[in-house]
Amino acid sequence: MTSPASSSEVKYLIESSEGNTFDVSGAALRQSNTFNAMFLNIGADGPIPFTDYNEATLKKVFEYCEHSVNEENYSGPKHQDDLSKWDLNFFNEMDQKMFIDVINASNFLDIERLTSYCCERIARMLRGKNTQEMIKVITLPTAEELEAKQKVEEKKAAAAKKVAEKAAETAEKTETLEELPVQQLVQTTRNKLTRKYLSFSNE
């Protein structure tokens, strides 16, 4: 059912990127500010298309929303140590790809509580790490790697320059060679004609 009625019993159909649909309660959906802005007052005819996200991701996001329906209103980020066992399990059972998909979906749906917990979790992952460790975690090349990369690029550029120079030289030579037969031809013809003229005049 896709109705604007705001009872918690109301179910909405959600459509994922695969074209699959599934039910989400109105109470859970109302945690999404995007949904509130787009559909709450006008309602939706047919499934609500969140087709940028796959079914597994959307189910995971709305699983969180369903769980936190009865929690008090969101009042800023909670310290990770204060998270419930359910919350911790929820985050721990996701792999990195799913986690990133959930952040992106949560960010699009503007579910403040979930986005904030996810971000706090990433911050916790970075906390206490020194620069080298952070570079590894956030997949940035290290200074040494950057230097090595720059050296390789410089070498490549130097090699390319050499090749270009050589090509230019070769082209120049070819040009001269191509010119030679014409000149030779002219010269040969001229010689022949001279010889002919001389023999003719001698006769």
Binding site: N92, M98, N107, T115, C119
Partner: peptide
Amino acid sequence: MTETRGFPLFSLPYVALKDVVLSLD
């Protein structure tokens, strides 16, 4: 989410990235 290697931090959406930076000590 237990893996900590290769996290694409700078690919996060703007709001999320901002939240992460603001959550750091």
